[in-house]
Amino acid sequence: MARGGGELIREHMSGKFIIPREELMHPGHSACPGCGEPIAMRLLLKALGPRTVMNVPAGCCAVIPGVWPRYSLKIPLIDHAFECTGATSSGIRAALDAKGMNDITVVGWAGDGGTVDIGLQSLSGAIDRGTDFLYVMYDNEAYMNTGSQCSGSTPWGAWTTTTPGGNEISHRTGKKRILEMLVENGISYAATVNIAFPEDLIKRAQIAQSIRGPKFLHILSPCPSGWKMDPSKTVEVAKLATQTGMFPLYEYRDSQYQFTEEIKDRKPVEEYLRLQRRFRHLSPTQISEIQNLVDNRLRELDARMEASRK
């Protein structure tokens, strides 16, 4: 059976911390058991350190940090409406600069619906304004806080409550290619990262932090209840997403695209799909259709990388 991140970590020396020790998150937050979001948040904050200010819109990310007067993070956090993560980050950055606090990292942290759908305009505006901040999209591939409705980042064929038969009703094009959209918008740095590859996640976050201007991280963040899977499989499923090519890890830096995690011996997508009951209804034909989509997508990415190096 495919093990999760353990294989990767065991290659390192025993008894040593291979990622930053400092905890910027308290236990007792409100995430469901096995949720990917707090794993992503905890790793990201370990990477960025305590001189970080964050703003979050509606979504699971507004619930997980806890109920007033309790709070789970050790950095200042500002809550705001759903569609304005980029704009709020711009305002925080402007005021910090006006007050001479230029060394503080500003992070806008939003889900996939809050990013690729309702928050897209404000994120695009923040890039256009050249706001020096890091935008992080934790992607659980649907509107999970409202109970699994299809978003622009839901993969083709997935069950959601608004695509009860898979998404042939609408949402025909599958996940919006948000990273490429933002590159064309003029972002300074962008990368896909995955909670199952924590060292890479931390490295990409720190690279992003070192670059001035608008930066973007796209984190795959499995949702056990929405993906209809065993909560213990969160890291394992996340890892398979990359190993099957469903969620390739790559970055855009210095005007070039490159893979950050080479996929050797790519596994068939079925290994990823069968662990999640949101894909249970798929016929063998539909599964091979998804395999084709992934194959084409990777070929396309290869071509994009090739072209960017010319």
Binding site: I9, K16, I18, E23, M25, H26, C35, P38
Partner: peptide, 11 residues
């Protein structure tokens, strides 16, 4: 190896 520590969503 501290894999459990790295991935624990609940610290």
């Amino acid at each position: 190896c501290y894999t459990c520590w790295i991935f624990c969503p609940d610290v």
